[in-house]
């Protein structure tokens, strides 16, 4: 069996006229990426997803294409939390209009809910959650809780 080339990939996902292509997503994280940018079963965007595509760079990867929507910087940085090697292409008229890498933000303000029920950020107080992004997870700056897995599940 031969490695599927670009032609095979082309069969799985067709090109889009305008929108965003999120490439080099950590294999298996495509659906979480959709969740992060708020795409659910009820949204109207035309979305194509390919998972476990062979890639020279990472072995296996996922790809997501969203028609008629350009991601903003904040959405891109959130994606970086679960797929740090992602590359994002903004497509206009079938051409790559802009190509962007992502950076893991240093702090997350109001992005993630602290899983600790005893944390003051879950009480009725005029503050948002604040997490420090560490190499091995997210650190709550109020209660010191460390989120090491299922970051998407904790997003607000």
């Amino acid at each position: 069996m031969t490695r599927p080339g670009p032609a095979a990939e082309g069969l799985m996902i067709s090109p889009i006229k305008n929108g965003t292509v999120i490439d080099h997503i950590t294999s298996g994280e495509a659906l979480n990426v959709l969740k992060i940018i708020g795409i659910t079963g009820t949204t109207t965007e035309s979305v194509s997803v390919a998972t476990n595509v062979s890639s020279n760079k990472t072995g296996k990867k996922d790809i997501v294409k969203i028609a008629n929507r350009e991601l903003c910087k904040e959405e891109m940085d959130r994606i970086a939390l679960i797929a740090p090697r992602v590359s994002i292409n903004i497509i206009r008229e079938f051409k790559v209009y802009a190509k962007r890498g992502v950076e893991r933000p240093e702090f997350l303000l109001g992005v993630v809910r602290c899983p600790n029920p005893g944390c003051i950020t879950n009480a009725h107080e005029p503050i948002s959650s604040r997490f420090e992004v560490l190499p091995h997870g997210l650190h709550c700056m109020y209660c010191d809780w460390l989120i090491t897995n299922d970051i998407t599940g904790h997003m607000i």
Binding site: G118, I120, M141, C143, W145
Partner: peptide, 23 residues
């Protein structure tokens, strides 16, 4: 009783805060 209460207090206080135990 809540964890992180003293951190919150330090953000709203105009005087020094000493944590004597939060949760």
């Amino acid at each position: 009783p809540k964890e992180g209460a003293a951190r919150l207090a330090s953000e709203f206080a105009s005087v020094p805060v000493i944590n004597a135990g939060d949760g």
